[in-house]
């Protein structure tokens, strides 16, 4: 087992007037090589949860194991864990700090002790992945547009080549093309290098398209854990109820079903929806001929 969370609870401002219970008895196991999505309403605890995976937060109670090691013990090398598990922050401005973008992206690889040559290679490689040209390298990360900043934040974690990538709303502020491009790069490194991915997102369309396993949180708890197809079909009502939704095409088929049409449930992508509609029409036409 790569990661195991056991009865994890987390409360902000414990025993103070503004006490907030953010995680409520979380149990979770993640295997190497999984591609997981995490969804949940705003404030349900997603960011709090993922900050436990690399020791940015330690549980109020409960245990976090990474490769069998309890990371909350004294003397654990958190630096090493943060190299293994790269976390892209939800708000990129909280992650950026260097004077120029080259240094920003080179920061991690430099800490890894790579040669200047290798560092340079990595910087250019990840810039390409986030679709920014080399002219950006000399610019300050603070003179960028929102989406450009997001791209740099993602690039600087990719440059570490971690074993696991945890991305907190990576596609917020990206333009549609950037969204597709960066997610497909992430899918690529997952498929080719077996990198474990945990993707936190409010974008139901992309989640449905990308992930193999989906976790749904509500008020500090994990309430569903399954394949996106299963969750978006069998638990559609519950998702809507807790403030989430369905991808547009899934929603469309869900409404058709509600109107008594016999049509497949849990359709997740445009391609699939198109196929289903055409198949259905063909079947109806064949029936008419008979």
């Amino acid at each position: 087992m790569f990661i195991r969370l056991e009865n994890v609870n987390y409360t902000y401002n414990l025993n103070m007037p503004f006490e907030t219970v953010a995680l409520n008895n979380i149990n979770l196991e993640i295997e190497k090589g999984e591609f997981i999505g995490l969804i949940g309403h705003t404030g349900c605890g997603k960011t709090t949860l993922i900050q436990h995976l690399n020791g940015l937060l330690t549980p109020t109670s409960g245990k976090v194991y990474i490769e069998g090691i309890d990371i909350c013990q004294k003397g654990v090398n958190l630096k090493l864990i943060r190299q293994k598990i790269g976390l892209v922050f939800q708000y990129p401005e909280n992650q950026l700090f260097e004077e120029n973008i080259f240094e920003e992206i080179a920061f991690g690889p430099r800490k890894l002790g790579l040669t200047e040559e290798e560092i340079k290679k990595r910087v250019y490689e990840v810039l390409e992945m986030v679709d920014l040209d080399v002219s950006y390298t000399e610019r300050s990360p603070f003179s960028l547009s929102g989406g450009e900043m997001r791209r740099i934040a993602i690039a600087s974690i990719l440059s570490l080549k971690p074993q696991m990538l945890v991305l907190d709303e990576p596609t917020a502020n990206l333009d549609p093309q950037g969204r597709s491009k960066i997610l497909s790069e992430i899918k690529n490194i997952h498929d080719h290098y077996g990198i474990t991915i945990l993707l936190v997102s409010h974008n139901m369309e992309k989640i449905a398209e990308m992930v193999e396993r989906l976790l749904v949180m509500n008020k500090g708890k994990i309430i569903l854990d399954g394949s996106p197809r299963e969750i978006f079909s069998r638990h559609a009502e519950q998702l809507i109820d807790i403030g989430l939704g369905l991808p547009q095409v899934t929603q469309c088929f869900y409404e058709l079903k509600k109107r008594g049409k016999s049509i497949k449930e849990g359709v997740l992508t445009v391609e699939e929806a198109e196929r289903e509609v055409l198949k259905k029409i063909k079947a109806l036409a064949n029936n008419l001929q008979k």
Binding site: G40, H41, Q90, G146, M204, G243
Partner: peptide, 12 residues
Amino acid sequence: DEPTAMLDPRGR
């Protein structure tokens, strides 16, 4: 300016 970028579907 992107007021919905960080919101869940209901919030949007």
